[in-house]
Amino acid sequence: MTIKKIFFSITIALFVLTSCNENKEVKKENISLAISGMTCEIGCAKTIQSKLSKKEGVLDAKVIFNDSIANIEFDANTTSKKNLIAFVDGIAGGDLYKASETATKKHSCTENCKKDCEHKMAKKMECKEDCKMACCADKTE
């Protein structure tokens, strides 16, 4: 009787360990969405960013209110571009926002660029061409 219990316990433990050890490789993809309907930075953009960040499969989400753009990095094994568009469209009951894929990725300067800019040591390679900060104005690198 005890041997059966030990064997059963070992079998259960092995099953749990092997089922939890999924070695799924993350397939990273990016999408930029143009979002219409945002009227404010905190109530709209931050809410959309927060909800996207919590969505399964989303690795990173940044919503830039001034450009009406969401830059999203996601795991293509878990979600899709079509699913992300539908997700944004459905926020707030589906009546406020409309998302569509955009070909150009908008950029806001990185924190490092901002910090370096303040110290007059900006590395232009960190600053993207559409950045409007003064440190990015001279794009010689």
Rank of each mutant, 00 (worst) to 15 (best):
Ile6Tyr: 01
Ala86Ser: 12
Leu59Thr: 10
Lys106Val: 02
Val58Ile: 03
Thr78Phe: 02
Ile85Pro: 02
Asn71His: 09
Lys54Pro: 04
Cys109Asp: 09
Lys27Gln: 12
Leu14Gln: 02
Met38Ser: 11
Phe7His: 04
Lys105Val: 12
Cys117Phe: 03
Gly43Ser: 15
Ser100Gly: 10
Lys81Val: 12
Thr18Trp: 06
Ala45Gly: 09
Ala70Glu: 05
Ile85Gln: 05
Ile10Cys: 02
Ile85Phe: 01
Lys51Met: 14
Val88Ser: 04
Lys51Ile: 06
Ile10Arg: 00
Ile72Met: 09
Ser68Phe: 11
Val26Gly: 05
Gly57Lys: 00
Ile48Asp: 10
Ala34Lys: 14
Phe15Lys: 00
Met121His: 11
Gly93Ser: 05
Val26Arg: 07
Ala61His: 06
Lys81Ala: 12
His107Pro: 01
Gly57Glu: 01
Phe15Cys: 07
Lys114Leu: 14
Asn21Pro: 02
Glu56Gly: 07
Asn30Tyr: 15
Ser53Met: 11
Cys40Leu: 10
Ala34Cys: 05
Lys46Glu: 15
Asn77Gly: 02
Thr18Ala: 05
Lys106Phe: 02
His107Ser: 13
Asp95Gly: 08
Asp89Cys: 05
Val26Cys: 05
Lys54Val: 04
Val16Leu: 12
Asn66Cys: 09
Met38Arg: 09
Ala61Cys: 06
Met38Pro: 10
Lys81Arg: 11
Asp116Asn: 12
Ile91Asp: 05
Asp89Ala: 05
Leu59Gly: 07
Thr39Leu: 15
Lys82Gln: 14
Thr110Ala: 11
Asn83Tyr: 09
Phe87Gln: 00
Gly57Pro: 00
Leu84Asp: 05
Ile72Gly: 12
Lys51Ser: 12
Lys106Trp: 01
Gly43Asp: 13
Lys54Arg: 12
Ala76Lys: 14
Leu14Lys: 02
Ile69Ala: 10
Ser50Lys: 15
Ser68Lys: 14
Ile10His: 01
Ser19Ala: 08
Ile72Ser: 08
Thr110Asp: 13
Leu96Glu: 15
Cys109Glu: 08
Thr39Gln: 15
Thr79Ile: 06
Asp89Val: 03
Ala86Trp: 02
Val63Ser: 08
Ser68Pro: 03
Leu17Asp: 00
Lys120Asp: 07
Glu118Leu: 04
Cys113His: 06
Thr47Gln: 11
Gly37Ala: 11
Gly94Glu: 08
Ser108Gln: 14
Ser32Thr: 15
Ala61Arg: 01
Val88Lys: 02
Asp75Val: 04
Ile42Val: 15
Thr104Ile: 10
Ile35Arg: 08
Val26Phe: 07
Thr110Met: 03
Gln49Thr: 11
Ala122Thr: 10
Ala122Arg: 03
Cys44Glu: 11
Asp67Ser: 14
Lys115Arg: 14
Lys105Pro: 06
Phe65Tyr: 12
Ser9Asn: 01
Glu118Ala: 08
Asn71Phe: 08
Leu33Val: 04
Asn23Ser: 12
Ile91Tyr: 07
Ser9Ala: 07
Cys109Gln: 01
Leu33Glu: 00
Leu14Met: 04
Thr110Trp: 09
Cys117Met: 09
Val16His: 03
Leu59Asp: 06
Ser100Asn: 11
Lys28Asp: 09
